[in-house]
Structure formats: structure tokens, C-alpha cells
Design a binder for these strands. Structure first.
Length: 217
DNA sequence: ACCCAGGTGGCCC
DNA sequence: GGGCCACATGGG
């Protein structure tokens, strides 16, 4: 635990700056993306998003009334398309029934939103946190596989639970929505550039803090 | 011909 | 609490 989250933030910030994460044109698109990207390469998700956009379905109201088979065909490239189609329709219906629209949903207290989302099939821990932070602007840090892998490689986590990682972020960065959005965004960039399962460590901005860099030097 | 990708839920122990 | 499985496509 010799590396602080704040230190990691600063190192990544000097390399990536403001990432503007999550990449989407609307809160609806963010929510749709969180479901589609589950265990799926983002490239495959982008193809689906383009089809939804051109098909006029990038909208929770439209999805709530969509035909599962038709929607499944539109999101085929994202994999698990039967599951994801049904889950997108269910999620859209549940949100609109409970809150009317996303602007109203944003006004609801965090704890109530967490109870609501946890009860929806297809919304697990990471999907819930991504929706809360990026679509609803709630101060919740998103811990995904990238985050755990990177923290593990710089010796911070490894066996830490997701809750512990979150607490560390909150105590070091404060519960600041913009900081948490960007930290997760920078982690995504770092992971895609350098820190995949088979890492490419050349010019990695955190190499000096990482097992891989220390082992080589 | 494998292995991997920003997960989730069900079932078992 | 953890291990295993199904869900499925597209790219390396």
C-alpha cells in the first residue's frame, strides 16, 4: 500500500489529461453501452451502437417498446445478444416505469437508486456503478477488471475487495464526480494502451510503479 | 485453432 | 465466501 491513489491520478493525468469519459452522446447511450460492453470488446459494441443510432433505437423509450428479436439482430456484434436484448428492454421499462425519465431519476437519492438497480437482472456491480457515475452523475467509483489488474500490477491491491478499492479512492480523491469519472477513464486508456492481459510495457506511464518495470530494472 | 474482451446470474459446495 | 458454467460475436 505504498502507492496512493492521488499519486496514480497525477501520473496518469500528466499523460492523458481530461479523457472526457464516458464516450457517448447522451445518458441513454451510456446506459445502453454499459449493458452491451459486458465481457465484450468495445470495438464490437461500437458497431452495435452505430446500428442503434441509425435505426433510431438509441433511446430508452424506444427500447422499452422494441421487439426482442429485432433488437437482438441490431446488437448481434456485441455477443450474448439474446440475453442483452431482453435485459435492455427490461431495464428500459423498469427505469421509465419507476422514474418517468432520466432527469427525474437523477434527482433520486443514491441509496434508493442502488436498491432499484440491484434488483434488475443483468445489472451487476460494475454495470450499476457505471450507470450511477456516468449516466446519473452520482459519486460512485467504478472498479472493473482493468482497475483490479492495474492496481494489482502496481502492488496496491491484488486481493483487495472492490469495496476496499472504492474506499481508498474516496479517502484519497474525495467523493468528486469529475475526478472519479476521469480516473476511471484514464485507467481504461492505460489498459487499452499498455495493460492488457498480455501487456505492452514500452513507454507505459506507470512502468516505474509497476511490477513489470521493477523486474526489468 | 486458439485466446481474449470494461460481466452477470445460476448452481454448487 | 469462492469455483464453474452458459451466454456469443469479432479481432489478434
Amino acid at each position: 500500500m505504498n502507492i496512493r491513489i492521488g499519486e496514480l491520478y497525477n501520473t496518469l493525468y500528466s499523460h492523458y489529461g481530461n479523457t472526457g469519459w464516458w464516450p457517448a452522446g447522451s445518458a441513454d447511450e451510456i446506459i445502453i453501452g454499459t449493458i452491451l460492453t459486458q465481457n465484450t470488446a468495445w470495438k464490437n459494441v461500437e458497431m452495435s451502437l452505430e446500428k442503434l443510432r441509425s435505426g433510431g433505437l438509441m433511446d430508452l423509450g424506444k427500447l422499452a417498446k422494441a421487439d426482442p428479436q429485432h433488437l437482438g439482430a441490431m446488437i448481434r456484434s456485441s455477443g450474448f445478444y439474446n440475453q442483452k436484448s431482453r435485459r435492455l428492454i427490461d431495464l428500459s421499462r423498469s427505469i421509465l416505469t419507476a422514474f418517468g425519465n432520466l432527469e427525474e431519476m437523477k434527482l433520486v437519492p443514491l441509496e434508493e437508486l442502488q436498491r432499484f438497480l440491484a434488483a434488475i437482472s443483468g445489472v451487476g456491480q460494475e454495470t450499476m456503478d457505471s450507470i450511477l457515475l456516468y449516466a446519473l452523475e452520482k459519486p460512485v467509483f467504478v472498479v472493473d477488471k482493468y482497475t483490479l489488474r492495474i492496481l494489482s500490477r502496481i502492488g496496491l491491491s491484488g486481493s483487495e475487495t472492490i469495496e476496499k478499492v472504492k474506499e481508498l479512492v474516496y479517502s484519497d480523491l474525495g467523493k468528486n464526480v469529475e475526478s472519479m469519472k476521469n480516473l476511471h477513464g484514464m485507467i481504461v486508456f492505460l489498459a487499452k494502451d499498455f495493460c492488457k492481459t498480455r501487456p505492452k510495457c514500452e513507454n507505459c506511464p506507470i512502468l516505474a510503479k509497476c511490477d513489470h518495470g521493477r523486474a526489468q530494472s
